[in-house]
Design a protein around this nucleic acid. Structure first.
Lengths: 186, 186
DNA sequence: AAGCAAATTGACTAATTAGTCAATTTTATT
DNA sequence: AATAAAATTGACTAATTAGTCAATTTGCTT
């Protein structure tokens, strides 16, 4: 693995465990097995490092989430597919998921980075918008709907991460999905 | 207002705005209008300060949330009362609410503090447990149910804070409550 | 093998910050 | 008014840390 990758991976782990401010760059480089200067060769600053990390994770997530979406026929099954994909990604990339939860609103993530990350979800926003128009889900503004949806999605994901054996339990997967579906459906 | 109060109030504001590690004690004392030493007279360390802040806020919240609960007759109306109280408190104590959201899982809050804070919610946990036993809400374990409940409650609260005019809109209050109720009801 | 650019190194610096403590002021008691 | 106790002060210290830079190593091209 090249040094840039090693730095990113180590930083991800340490930022999660100790937070941004409590992770000295010296510790990142030490655990990554490189010199302190190498970090600043690849990233202009500690802030740039965490912003790059943010976008890298977001890209990985967005690629997964839409996987197989066009094979689903009903609106409900599309949402359920997103639900499964999101939880699946989070179980396969737990560090990345926890990183988002901790830093999605942190001030060290720049406005530009955050906007760029958000734009990757446009297709899902359109899907939700369609669901409202077709009167399948409750008629509220898109902003409110997506806030609630994400909150339930994330709460469920946390629960699956804490209880990984449930991932193969189709009954619980359906039960937990219904907490989301019943909430939003008309 | 005595100096201890001033320090707590200033710390609350600054911790919210800049985070724990990016708020020097010197800044807290300066903005509170006291000397740096005074902070360490009342609190053994910066950590003790934030832990005291945490428990103070939690006490305020728990007092509000159960207000008038015994006057409600049905299970649904009890949950709705809690919903209104929680949102009402958060609109009246926005700094305190945001403080919780930011620091409820932060490592600077000690295990003892967190447990002490959690114990104040016991009566509400029992209420939810009753709801499951009486088959009014979905039959899942208590831990999962309360996680989901809190997630939806917090997401709604954020939305009301961002759109304070909605607090008097009874129609939206009912609509938004139904996102919670429909999610958990059988 | 020679020559060159890019990557890597780590000792060092300048800045920041939690917490101390001896001196001073305020408050309460007789 | 005299005395003691408690609260307050802020200059200071010891420790930490982001980022620099001149020196060295590595890898590539001819």
């Amino acid at each position: 693995m090249d040094k840039r990758e090693k730095i990113l991976k180590t930083a991800l782990k340490l930022f999660n465990r100790y937070g941004f401010d409590n992770t000295p760059t010296a510790r990142i480089t030490k655990e990554a097995g490189v010199a302190t200067g190498t970090l600043f060769n690849y990233f202009r600053s500690k802030e740039e490092l965490i912003n790059v990390l943010y976008l890298t994770c977001k890209e990985s997530l967005t690629r997964w989430v839409s996987f197989g979406l066009d094979q689903e026929t009903t609106f409900r099954s599309k949402i359920k597919r997103i639900y499964r994909n999101y939880i699946g990604w989070s179980l396969d990339h737990t560090e990345e998921f926890l990183f988002f939860q901790q830093f999605c609103n942190a001030s060290c993530i720049g406005e530009t980075t955050r906007k760029e990350g958000l734009s990757k979800f446009n297709n899902i926003m359109e899907l939700i918008s369609d669901g409202i128009d077709q009167e399948i889900i409750k008629n509220v503004n898109l902003d409110y709907m997506s806030t609630l949806l994400m909150a339930i999605l994330n709460a469920n994901t946390y629960y699956f991460i804490d209880n990984p054996s449930l991932a193969d339990d189709e009954v619980f997967l359906e039960t937990s999905f219904n907490f989301l579906w019943d909430s939003i459906k008309k």
